[in-house]
Amino acid sequence: MTIRSVSELQAGVKLTQDVHTPLGGLLLQKGKVLLPRDLDVLKAFLVQQVNIEGPDGDTTKIPTIKTAGQKPSLIFSDIAANAGTDEAGARKDQPLHEEYDKTLTLVKSCYQSAHTGELRMYEVRNQMEALLKHQEDYHLLKFSPRMTSRHEYRYHNAVLCALSSYKLARWIGLPQKDWLQVAFAGLLHDIGNAKIDPLLLNKPSKLTSEESEEMRRHTTYGYQILKNVAAVNEGVRLAALQHHEKVDGSGYPLKLDGTKIHIYARIVAVADIFHAMTLDKFYRGAQSPYAVLEQIQLEAFGKLDPMIVQTFINKVTSFHNGTKVRLSNNEVGEIVFTDNLHPTRPMVSIDGQIINLMQQRQLFIEEVIS
Results as ranks from 00 to 15, higher is better:
42 L>C: 07
43 K>V: 12
43 K>M: 11
44 A>S: 13
45 F>W: 07
45 F>I: 06
45 F>A: 04
45 F>G: 00
46 L>A: 12
46 L>S: 12
46 L>I: 12
49 Q>P: 10
49 Q>R: 07
49 Q>E: 15
50 V>M: 05
50 V>Y: 01
50 V>D: 02
51 N>W: 05
52 I>M: 13
52 I>A: 06
54 G>Q: 02
54 G>N: 05
54 G>I: 02
56 D>S: 12
57 G>T: 06
57 G>A: 09
58 D>W: 08
61 K>F: 09
63 P>H: 11
63 P>D: 14
63 P>C: 10
64 T>E: 08
65 I>R: 02
66 K>E: 15
66 K>H: 14
67 T>Y: 04
69 G>E: 09
69 G>W: 07
70 Q>G: 06
71 K>M: 02
71 K>T: 05
71 K>H: 05
72 P>E: 13
72 P>C: 05
76 F>I: 13
76 F>N: 10
78 D>M: 03
78 D>Q: 05
78 D>R: 02
80 A>S: 08
80 A>D: 13
80 A>W: 08
84 G>R: 09
85 T>N: 14
85 T>R: 10
85 T>H: 13
88 A>C: 13
89 G>T: 07
90 A>P: 00
90 A>H: 10
91 R>W: 08
91 R>K: 15
91 R>A: 12
94 Q>K: 11
98 E>W: 06
99 E>P: 01
99 E>F: 00
100 Y>V: 01
101 D>L: 03
103 T>Q: 02
103 T>C: 01
104 L>S: 01
106 L>K: 00
107 V>A: 01
108 K>S: 04
109 S>T: 04
111 Y>H: 09
112 Q>G: 11
113 S>G: 14
114 A>P: 03
114 A>F: 04
116 T>Y: 13
116 T>N: 14
118 E>R: 09
118 E>M: 09
118 E>H: 14
119 L>M: 05
